[in-house]
Nucleic acid binder design. Structure first.
Length: 270
DNA sequence: ATGACGGATCTAATCCGA
């Protein structure tokens, strides 16, 4: 039995924040770190820093300037085909096999401002991405003898009332509209997936992983949303130490933070 | 809840995020 710490973080430029990433790895010692919005191509990725930090096994899906996801691991990884969720083939998914389980790292489209797919192509793209996730994980849940699966990343949807600072005021705001939150809940239901954060944290407890850059004082206004998720499938969920779930809110502070903070969990792998 | 911030890019002004 190996205890593994798995963390996910929308880093909003891995090159700009590589020193913060290195410090986080040094302090929190994740065995696997999944990043979103690396905002670079594969060749530009700061591999050396990850080697130095003890996570030398890296799978990168990059593109110029925007999006981009990566998985960095202490243990050897086997790269898998990314799940086919993005109709535009953006770098929004990377998948590996590591320590006997499967790991998907996702960056779901934000969806822009207007929550109407008829007039907003980006919102239509987000809804399509979510429906593809539902169909894929539903089909996978029907399969026998698949490895345990963990799905992490910036899902860009805050599903529950207390995953946002004001349920009432955000009902018409992209990330918390009913069509999105219903879509997310259907992925979990049809895929037989567990949203690890909410197993131990009751529905009335506020949980945020993102705070806008535009607030004058993010901490004082505390208008956050829980956009970053760690999910496990039926065989993955029992491997999770539920008490280990952490939101690393401290990372929203200090110099040049990302607008998202890391989320982590400990897994008992074989 | 809009766009006060912040990132990348054809380094100047624009696109993008959520």
């Amino acid at each position: 039995m190996t205890r593994l710490s798995l963390a996910t973080w929308n880093i909003n430029s891995v090159r700009l924040r590589i020193d913060r990433v290195s410090a986080f790895i040094k302090r929190e010692k994740p065995d696997i770190l999944c990043l979103q919005e690396i905002k670079c191509q594969e060749a530009e990725y700061p591999l050396k820093a990850f080697e130095k930090a003890g996570l030398p096994h890296v799978a990168i899906a990059g593109q110029k300037g925007m999006h981009g996801v990566a998985i960095a691991s202490r243990h050897p990884i086997e790269r898998l085909d990314p799940p086919p969720f993005c109709q535009h083939n953006h770098a929004r998914a990377v998948a590996v096999k590591v320590a006997g389980f499967e790991l998907h790292n996702l960056y779901v489209p934000a969806g822009a401002d207007i929550p109407d797919p008829a007039v907003n192509d980006k919102f239509a793209h987000k809804l399509d991405f979510v429906e593809r996730m539902r169909a894929y994980y539903a089909a996978r849940a029907r399969k026998k003898s698949v490895p345990p699966l963990f799905i992490v990343g910036d899902i860009n949807i805050a599903p529950h009332e207390n995953d946002v600072w004001s349920h009432r005021q955000l009902l018409t705001v992209v990330s918390h509209t009913p069509v999105e939150t219903d879509g997310l809940m259907r992925i979990l239901e049809d895929g037989k997936l567990t949203d690890i954060a909410r197993v131990r944290h009751p529905p009335e407890e506020k949980l945020y992983t993102w705070w806008s850059y535009r607030a004058a004082d993010w901490q004082a206004s505390n208008r956050g949303r829980r956009l970053d998720h760690i999910w496990a499938d039926r065989t993955g969920a029992p491997m999770v130490d539920l008490a280990s779930y952490r939101i690393h809110t401290k990372e929203r502070g200090g110099e040049k933070p990302s607008d998202h903070v890391p989320v982590s969990v400990t897994i008992d792998a074989v």
